[in-house]
Amino acid sequence: MLTVENLTCGYGDIKAVHDLSFAVGTGEIFAMLGANGAGKTSTIMCLAGHVAAMSGSVSLNGTTITNQPAQARVGHGMALVPEGRRVFAELSVEENLVVGGHTVGGPELTANLERIFGHFPRLAERKTQAAGSLSGGEQQMLAIGRALMANPQLVLIDELSLGLMPKAIDACYEVLQALKADGLSILLVEQNTTRVLDIADQVIVLESGVKSWEGTGADADGNAALLEAYLGTAG
């Protein structure tokens, strides 16, 4: 599905991620863990086309997208749920979703809206409300809904649970399970390690921009030394 080979990326002359390789399979939840500044967000933003790749390659469903502009990537089946959610605060909930489905034709857009409102009844109740007036959990639902409007096969999610109430986190993880059940691939960056390891099929850990561990979710869950080291660095 998504193949990343020897990817180095960063800002200007500063490399944030070095020589990173991994592959996300169809229908998998793939978790990327690491301390603040380890390069997780840089990796996600590079995959989304917002941070320049200096070397290496990224391919999605066999198409190389390494140097494609951000706006072209959604057409290859990739959608982004960015760190901090970044909903369009002054636009209504419905308008945010319409932007998410920008590349989708009219009739399909209507069908997708109905589907998302069916998934997230809270958003349907508030569809004319400005997105900025929603709670953090509702904004995260909106950011996920907005990504799903594009009919993606792979969803990149940066910091799913950061800053959310426990109840909202539960709801987000339920949504992830449902997406996986629908056959979507998910690349998930998280700080909330315990929740991630319960559902992740594969896990990698980044340290200072370099991959320091990889394995299955179950391996990671049972690996006390890893958890301690990781949680230790995470502080």
Partner: peptide, 24 residues
């Protein structure tokens, strides 16, 4: 209109708008 909505989204956050296929 969808173009108008896309335009307002771009004003609010060009980077994220481009991720949904809007040509900035």
């Amino acid at each position: 209109t969808r173009t108008g909505i896309a335009w307002r989204a771009t004003v609010a956050d060009p980077e994220i708008a481009s991720s949904f296929g809007i040509d900035i």
